[in-house]
Structure formats: structure tokens, C-alpha cells
Computed example of a mutant assay.
Amino acid sequence: MGRSYLFLVLAIIFEIIATTFLKKSDQFTKLWPSIFTVLGYIAAFYCLSLALRQIPVGIAYAVWSGVGIIFITIIGIVVFKQTPDLPAIVGISLIVVGVIVINLFSKMGGQ
């Protein structure tokens, strides 16, 4: 199971990279950011597919999307100078709480 979580972490990292470069690609008009976007998403989905061998899809997707949202929000603040308003902060906080609840309390079995 540990290896599956390693693949999930890699999927998250590649998705964060791809999404960051998606913003930088300027609607796919800039070559290198566009290439990094496409390659990042391919790598992210491949690693996610490997993680799904043992992690239930609902759990994996909740963690993948939740952690990705948190890091992309931080990147948006730091790199792109985007400031989330109160409703965005509340919504993101609810996502974080949901991911924590799933990981701490879910008895969802594999496969």
C-alpha cells in the first residue's frame, strides 16, 4: 500500500506542476509552458492510475484533488498574486476538512 501512496504523491506533484504551467501557457499560445502542461498531466494521470491499483478511487481522487487545490491556491497567491476572498477560503477549508475526515475515519476497503 505504501507504494500506491508514493504514486499518489507523484500524481499530485505532476498535477500541480501541470496546472501551474497551464496558467503560464496563456491558453496554449506559449510553447514551453504548453509542453510542460501536457507532459505534467500525462504523468499525473499515469501515476494516479498506478495508485488506483490499491487505493479506492474515491479516496485517491479526494486526496489528489484536495491537496492539489490547496497547493494551487498557494501558488496562485505567491506566484500569480491572486488573493482568495472569504468564500474561497471557507470553501477550501471545507475541502481540507473533508480530506482529513476521509483519511482519518473512512473504512472504505481497497478495490
Rank of each mutant, 00 (worst) to 15 (best):
L104S: 10
K30P: 02
Q82P: 05
G98D: 00
V79D: 09
T37Y: 09
F14E: 02
P33G: 05
R53P: 00
K81R: 13
G109D: 14
P33D: 05
L94T: 10
L10A: 15
V63H: 02
T73M: 11
A43N: 04
K107M: 09
I16E: 07
S49H: 08
I92Q: 03
L48K: 04
G2W: 12
P84F: 09
T83K: 10
Y61N: 05
S106L: 10
T19F: 03
V9D: 00
I95S: 10
I75M: 05
C47L: 05
W64M: 07
L22V: 11
F28G: 06
F21R: 07
F105D: 01
F14L: 02
S106M: 08
Y46P: 03
V9E: 00
A18K: 07
M108K: 15
A18W: 03
L48T: 01
Y46F: 14
F14S: 14
I42P: 00
A51F: 09
L48N: 01
L94Y: 03
F14W: 11
V96P: 00
T29D: 09
W64D: 06
L48H: 06
P84S: 07
I17N: 02
G58W: 02
K81Y: 06
I74E: 04
V96I: 13
I92N: 11
I59N: 08
F28I: 10
Q54G: 11
M108D: 09
G109C: 01
V78W: 07
P87M: 04
V101C: 10
M1L: 11
S106V: 12
V90E: 01
G2H: 12
F80G: 06
G66W: 06
S49Q: 09
A43V: 04
Q82S: 12
V38M: 11
L8M: 09
F80W: 12
V78R: 03
L22G: 09
Y61D: 05
S34N: 06
S25P: 01
S34E: 05
A11E: 04
L31F: 15
P84V: 09
A11Q: 03
I12W: 03
E15L: 00
K30A: 12
V67I: 15
A51K: 08
Y61G: 06
I16P: 00
G66R: 08
G110R: 11
A44L: 06
I100F: 13
K107I: 02
F80S: 06
P56F: 01
S34V: 07
V57G: 04
T73W: 06
I72L: 15
S106A: 12
Y61R: 07
V79H: 06
L50A: 11
F80D: 05
T37C: 14
I100H: 09
V79A: 13
V9M: 14
K81G: 03
Y41C: 08
P56Q: 02
V97M: 13
G2D: 10
F45Y: 14
